[in-house]
């Protein structure tokens, strides 16, 4: 599968995750969200930037439980909870946010 945007082709797997992480840019993130009828706000970007930094440091996309805990530590308890994160990413915080962030699907999780 692939997404065409601005004359570029972004290959994805069957679930819509980018095949090549290095292809990621902010435009494709917004386009992936648009295809899901979602719009990325600064609150979404806060979580997505966190995920990209986490991946850069640890070379994995964190499981949702880990993401929630780590967000809580970094951005405060009002954001480090399932309710807040599910409101932003209704398809599952780790799964959906990782997709838009260009990361692989988190290992064994929501």
């Amino acid at each position: 599968m692939a997404i065409e945007l601005n004359g570029k082709t972004y290959d994805t797997d069957e679930e819509g995750y980018l095949a090549d992480l290095s292809q990621w840019d902010e435009d494709i993130a917004a386009e992936m969200a648009r295809l899901d009828d979602a719009e990325l706000t600064s609150a979404h970007w806060e979580v997505m930037n966190f995920l990209r930094e986490y991946y850069e440091e640890y070379q994995i996309a964190p499981a949702v439980r880990v993401l929630t805990k780590a967000i809580g530590k970094k951005l405060g308890k009002d954001k480090g909870n399932s309710k807040y994160l599910y409101e932003l990413f209704p398809y599952g915080p780790a799964k959906q946010a990782c997709k838009y962030s260009g990361l692989p699907k988190p290992t064994g999780c929501v």
């Binding site: 986490y54 440091e57 640890y58 070379q59 994995i60 964190p62 499981a63 880990v66 805990k69 780590a70």
Partner: peptide, 14 residues
């Protein structure tokens, strides 16, 4: 090959 050694540092989070 992918360097997976940084992932050991994430084990504490898990």
């Amino acid at each position: 090959m992918k360097n997976f050694s940084p992932t050991y540092k994430a084990l504490g989070d898990y």
